[in-house]
Write a protein that binds this DNA or RNA. Structure first.
Lengths: 142, 142
DNA sequence: CCTGAACCTACAGTGACTGTAGCAAAGGGG
DNA sequence: CCCCTTTGCTACAGTCACTGTAGGTTCAGG
């Protein structure tokens, strides 16, 4: 039976974040001392560690909620789990591709700019000149 | 003199977003018709196109605010502009590196999971087993 | 018993929008 | 000139995943 601060320390989570996870139903309501302070056990620690690790892999809280529900049904097929992980992999890959395109354009801008004064700055010129857009009208989702 | 809807259409921006940019002072308050509707000119269109293009490159609105201020002082050195772009390049590169690490771990998880049942699912196991964390206690910033 | 750290609730704020409700204005067709 | 649909207006709430603050209470060590 550990306090919220100890749980926070052991999982690398902020105290507020733990209370937030409880509020949105990702963590169960824990026992309380008679003074009203939260007390956690090992199962809570495991669950929170799972959540934090999944968050570090970029899973959304909704995806984590699904993963937690699936892991409570050990006899079911793990195809759904794999599907969630694969979706996450696709999203990560798409973001990498997008960011690599950005990096290319940023590098090009900086390479071309040899100006001294703002008036001749190639960086600003590229930003100003809408015609140089590669793919316009798509989302930013960086 | 064009309406907000036309401006939105020409720049690939939502109408609400334009009003939001005005609200936070990124776009100047435009003229109005006597009925109170906004009317924009070419300077507004250029400014908004600049903002949108910079957003597509992942610059924050604060960075864009700085860039716009600098571009209003054409006689100054463009070193500050380059510094902002370079900072953005570093941030993009850092995010790519982080996401590539995530992609690696996701791929490994999926490759290793040949299980049928949730009980043996390697994906869940990796998420559960805190010891397999590469670098713990760092931010997620994906 | 006392003190100071840790805890409690409730709420506001972040960034960059997006969506909604309930209106008013604009402009084209009849 | 009227109607009607589209577009615009304001004001505010919601998104995601937290983070921070205010103002108070409880706990553990000495």
């Amino acid at each position: 039976m550990i306090s919220i601060g100890t749980l926070a320390g052991r999982t690398g989570t902020k105290v507020q974040t733990i209370r937030y996870y409880e509020q949105i139903g990702l963590l169960p309501e824990p026992e309380r001392t008679q003074g009203g302070q939260r007390r956690y056990d090992d199962a809570d620690l495991d669950r929170l560690a799972f959540i934090r690790h999944a968050r570090q892999l970029g899973f959304t809280l909704e995806a984590i909620r699904e993963l937690l529900e699936l892991s409570d049904r050990p006899e079911r097929s793990c195809a759904e789990v794999d599907a969630i992980a694969q979706r996450q992999l696709r999203e990560v890959s798409a973001r990498i591709a997008r960011l690599e395109a950005l990096r290319g354009e940023l590098r090009r801008m900086l390479r071309e700019c040899q100006a001294d004064r703002v008036a001749d700055c190639r960086v600003l010129e590229v930003l100003r000149d809408h015609a140089e857009c590669l793919t316009d009208h798509d989302r930013i989702g960086t």
